[in-house]
Amino acid sequence: MRIEAEKTGDILIVTPMEKSIDASISADFKARMLEEIENGARRIVLDLSHVDFLDSSALGAMVSALKALGGVGSLAICGIREPVVNVFKLTRLDRVFRLYEGRSSACSVLSGNPGEEPEY
Protein backbone atom coordinates (compact mmCIF):
# COMPACT_ATOMS: atom_id res chain seq x y z
CA MET A 1 0.00 0.00 0.00
CA ARG A 2 1.27 3.43 -0.88
CA ILE A 3 1.21 5.87 2.01
CA GLU A 4 2.93 9.21 2.28
CA ALA A 5 3.73 10.68 5.69
CA GLU A 6 5.08 14.11 6.50
CA LYS A 7 5.59 16.04 9.70
CA THR A 8 4.36 19.58 10.27
CA GLY A 9 5.61 20.57 13.68
CA ASP A 10 4.52 17.79 15.99
CA ILE A 11 1.69 16.78 13.71
CA LEU A 12 2.09 13.75 11.45
CA ILE A 13 0.09 13.95 8.23
CA VAL A 14 -0.61 10.51 6.80
CA THR A 15 -1.86 10.40 3.22
CA PRO A 16 -2.90 7.07 1.71
CA MET A 17 -2.25 7.27 -2.02
CA GLU A 18 -4.73 4.54 -2.94
CA LYS A 19 -8.14 5.14 -4.50
CA SER A 20 -9.65 2.36 -2.47
CA ILE A 21 -8.81 0.98 0.94
CA ASP A 22 -10.37 -2.42 1.31
CA ALA A 23 -9.70 -5.79 2.88
CA SER A 24 -6.81 -6.45 0.53
CA ILE A 25 -4.72 -3.58 1.91
CA SER A 26 -6.37 -2.53 5.14
CA ALA A 27 -4.02 -4.77 7.15
CA ASP A 28 -1.07 -2.84 5.72
CA PHE A 29 -2.84 0.39 6.44
CA LYS A 30 -3.53 -0.59 10.03
CA ALA A 31 0.04 -1.79 10.58
CA ARG A 32 1.45 1.47 9.24
CA MET A 33 -0.80 3.59 11.45
CA LEU A 34 0.06 1.55 14.54
CA GLU A 35 3.73 1.69 13.67
CA GLU A 36 3.60 5.48 13.50
CA ILE A 37 1.90 5.61 16.88
CA GLU A 38 4.42 3.19 18.34
CA ASN A 39 7.16 5.44 17.00
CA GLY A 40 5.77 8.32 18.98
CA ALA A 41 3.21 10.04 16.78
CA ARG A 42 0.56 11.51 19.03
CA ARG A 43 -1.15 14.03 16.81
CA ILE A 44 -2.13 12.55 13.47
CA VAL A 45 -4.03 14.00 10.57
CA LEU A 46 -5.26 11.38 8.14
CA ASP A 47 -5.68 12.92 4.71
CA LEU A 48 -8.17 10.88 2.66
CA SER A 49 -8.28 13.20 -0.32
CA HIS A 50 -7.07 10.47 -2.68
CA VAL A 51 -9.52 7.87 -1.44
CA ASP A 52 -12.81 7.17 -3.23
CA PHE A 53 -13.84 4.07 -1.36
CA LEU A 54 -13.36 2.65 2.12
CA ASP A 55 -14.71 -0.63 3.27
CA SER A 56 -15.45 -1.66 6.81
CA SER A 57 -12.00 -3.18 7.32
CA ALA A 58 -10.44 0.22 6.60
CA LEU A 59 -12.77 1.81 9.11
CA GLY A 60 -11.76 -0.87 11.58
CA ALA A 61 -8.11 0.04 11.04
CA MET A 62 -8.88 3.66 11.85
CA VAL A 63 -10.76 2.69 14.99
CA SER A 64 -7.75 0.59 16.04
CA ALA A 65 -5.49 3.61 15.53
CA LEU A 66 -7.79 5.80 17.56
CA LYS A 67 -7.84 3.23 20.34
CA ALA A 68 -4.04 2.92 20.23
CA LEU A 69 -3.77 6.65 20.78
CA GLY A 70 -5.94 6.20 23.83
CA GLY A 71 -6.27 9.35 25.87
CA VAL A 72 -2.81 10.58 25.05
CA GLY A 73 -3.16 11.66 21.44
CA SER A 74 -5.59 12.74 18.79
CA LEU A 75 -6.53 11.77 15.29
CA ALA A 76 -8.27 14.03 12.80
CA ILE A 77 -9.40 13.20 9.28
CA CYS A 78 -9.51 15.56 6.34
CA GLY A 79 -10.03 15.66 2.58
CA ILE A 80 -12.91 13.29 2.77
CA ARG A 81 -15.07 12.75 -0.33
CA GLU A 82 -18.79 12.10 -0.49
CA PRO A 83 -18.73 8.30 -0.81
CA VAL A 84 -16.32 8.11 2.09
CA VAL A 85 -18.41 10.48 4.20
CA ASN A 86 -21.33 8.17 3.58
CA VAL A 87 -19.59 5.19 5.13
CA PHE A 88 -18.61 7.27 8.15
CA LYS A 89 -22.26 8.26 8.56
CA LEU A 90 -23.43 4.70 8.01
CA THR A 91 -21.28 3.45 10.85
CA ARG A 92 -21.77 6.55 13.05
CA LEU A 93 -18.01 6.98 13.04
CA ASP A 94 -18.57 10.64 12.23
CA ARG A 95 -19.39 10.96 15.94
CA VAL A 96 -16.05 9.50 16.94
CA PHE A 97 -13.57 10.97 14.50
CA ARG A 98 -12.94 14.65 14.01
CA LEU A 99 -13.66 15.29 10.33
CA TYR A 100 -12.39 18.40 8.57
CA GLU A 101 -12.61 19.66 5.07
CA GLY A 102 -9.01 20.71 4.60
CA ARG A 103 -5.60 19.90 6.08
CA SER A 104 -5.16 23.33 7.55
CA SER A 105 -8.31 23.11 9.66
CA ALA A 106 -7.36 19.68 10.90
CA CYS A 107 -3.79 20.72 11.74
CA SER A 108 -5.01 23.87 13.39
CA VAL A 109 -7.28 22.05 15.81
CA LEU A 110 -4.66 19.44 16.62
CA SER A 111 -2.28 22.30 17.35
CA GLY A 112 -4.64 23.33 20.06
CA ASN A 113 -6.33 26.26 18.35
CA PRO A 114 -9.57 26.52 20.31
CA GLY A 115 -11.38 28.30 17.47
CA GLU A 116 -11.49 25.22 15.26
CA GLU A 117 -14.48 22.97 15.91
CA PRO A 118 -14.96 19.74 14.02
CA GLU A 119 -16.67 20.43 10.71
CA TYR A 120 -19.34 17.78 10.86
Binding site: S56, G60, L90, R95, V96
Partner: peptide, 20 residues
Protein backbone atom coordinates in the same frame (compact mmCIF):
# COMPACT_ATOMS: atom_id res chain seq x y z
CA UNK B 1 -22.53 -3.48 16.57
CA UNK B 2 -19.68 -1.97 18.51
CA UNK B 3 -21.11 -0.36 21.60
CA UNK B 4 -19.10 2.84 21.92
CA UNK B 5 -19.42 6.41 23.08
CA UNK B 6 -19.40 9.53 20.95
CA UNK B 7 -17.61 12.82 21.59
CA UNK B 8 -20.23 13.80 24.11
CA UNK B 9 -20.17 10.59 26.05
CA UNK B 10 -23.47 9.39 24.62
CA UNK B 11 -24.08 5.78 23.61
CA UNK B 12 -22.92 5.34 20.03
CA UNK B 13 -23.76 2.00 18.41
CA UNK B 14 -21.32 1.67 15.54
CA UNK B 15 -22.17 -0.74 12.71
CA UNK B 16 -18.82 -2.32 11.91
CA UNK B 17 -17.42 -5.11 9.76
CA UNK B 18 -20.21 -5.04 7.21
CA UNK B 19 -19.81 -6.39 3.74
CA UNK B 20 -21.01 -4.42 0.83
Amino acid sequence: IEHAQDFWGQYNPMWMDWQV
